[in-house]
Design a protein around this nucleic acid. Structure first.
Length: 346
DNA sequence: TACACGTGGTC
DNA sequence: TGACCAAGTGT
């Protein structure tokens, strides 16, 4: 219990004053946990406030449209979190009469809630003795106990969950869990951890063996794919354009301009002779201009998207009926949002 | 199981 | 500056 006691004591003296730490309302804890998945506190905070304001209860969230939820989520990334959040809100309201599930097993049934989030909510809101294992916990445990098992291997996932569960102080599960995570985020950081002032530095295996920097171990690194996006930005004399809803892959259910994806960079001739271009404009009299002289590179975790925005000037047509001003009502990827801001100011 | 899924921060 | 990483989950 020494491990837990030291960390909890450190936590009580050093924890940040975060809005979701002032409540045990499961809806708010759930919302905060979904927002914080793979997301820094600083980045997620404004979204937490926005969501609480727009949707003070699960009933408000359930009543909203998916588009409204996605619009509010815009810019935060991993948009399936928003869609699953919305789906689960409707499930809680319609199937559970608005009663939030109150055990790890029941919470785990919510879409978008996995082992980590179910453990977090169950321990924080209901004091259930379930240990969380997130990136912070992997790092703290791997270093303190000198464990080199890859954290993204099946063996590692099991091993760390078991260890975390063994270390848990079941009488204060929620506080213990948050203590380990806060400690990982603020003291036992990925880079430049504060080992000199760490309250566990006398018993940390990694520090003694001088292998802090090598832990935790992660198996293999992923390859970055290159993709080439050509957006067809329609501009008519009466200031209309057209957008489409993405139906698969990245940014699903978000909006964008008609897209021609190509295997390599293409020029204007390849663009106007493409099937997509013909389907959209046929024999209409178009004039095509490249908006950005150098390609915009949008970097995602697994792919770099090289983007050209082609401005297509075209006569008025019923086919292109969306007012430019109305675009801002639609959820769009940051890549598109950035373009809109630049285009507007030109 | 391996991979897809966003955006922004850090060094 | 490229590489790594963030309170992970779904398929």
């Amino acid at each position: 219990m020494k491990f837990s006691n030291v960390l909890v004591q450190w936590y009580l003296q050093n924890k940040r004053d975060l809005p979701w730490r002032q409540t045990s309302n499961p809806y708010k804890i759930w919302l905060s946990e979904i927002i914080l998945q793979q997301t820094r506190v600083d980045q997620g905070m404004v979204y937490y406030f926005k969501f609480i304001e727009h949707f003070p209860t699960v009933f408000h969230l359930a009543k909203a449209s998916e588009e409204e939820v996605l619009k509010l989520w815009q810019g935060l990334g991993y948009y399936s979190r928003a869609r699953n959040l919305h789906f689960s809100a409707k499930y809680i309201v319609n199937e559970l009469k608005g009663h939030f599930p109150s055990s790890y097993i029941q919470i785990l049934k919510l879409k978008g809630v996995g082992d980590y989030t179910a453990s977090a909510i169950a321990s924080i809101c209901y004091n259930e003795a379930t240990a969380v294992v997130d990136g912070n916990v992997y790092r703290v445990l791997a270093r303190y106990f000198g464990i080199a098992t890859p954290i993204n291997s099946t063996k590692g996932i099991k091993e760390f969950k078991l260890l975390a569960q063994k270390l848990l102080n079941p009488t204060i599960s929620g506080t213990h869990n948050q203590a380990v995570m806060e400690f990982g985020a603020r003291m036992c950081k990925p880079q430049n951890p504060d080992c000199e002032i760490c309250p566990l530095n006398e018993s940390c295996v990694a520090l003694q063996k001088q292998i802090v920097k090598t832990l935790p171990v992660k198996e293999k690194k992923l390859t970055i794919k290159k993709r080439y996006f050509n957006y067809l930005v329609v501009q008519t004399p009466n200031n209309k354009t057209i957008i489409e809803k993405r139906e698969k892959g990245i940014w699903i259910n978000l909006y964008q301009f008609p897209l021609l994806e190509s295997a390599h960079e293409i020029d204007v001739n390849q663009l106007i002779t493409s099937e997509k271009f013909d389907k959209l404009f046929g024999k209409l009299n178009t004039s095509v201009k490249l908006f950005n002289q150098t390609m915009v590179v949008h970097k995602l975790s697994h792919q770099h998207i090289y983007t050209k925005f082609w401005i297509i000037n075209i006569p008025n047509s019923a086919k292109f009926s969306l007012n430019w001003d109305e675009i801002k009502r639609f959820p769009v990827p940051i890549l598109i949002d950035n373009f809109l801001n630049e285009y507007k100011s030109n």
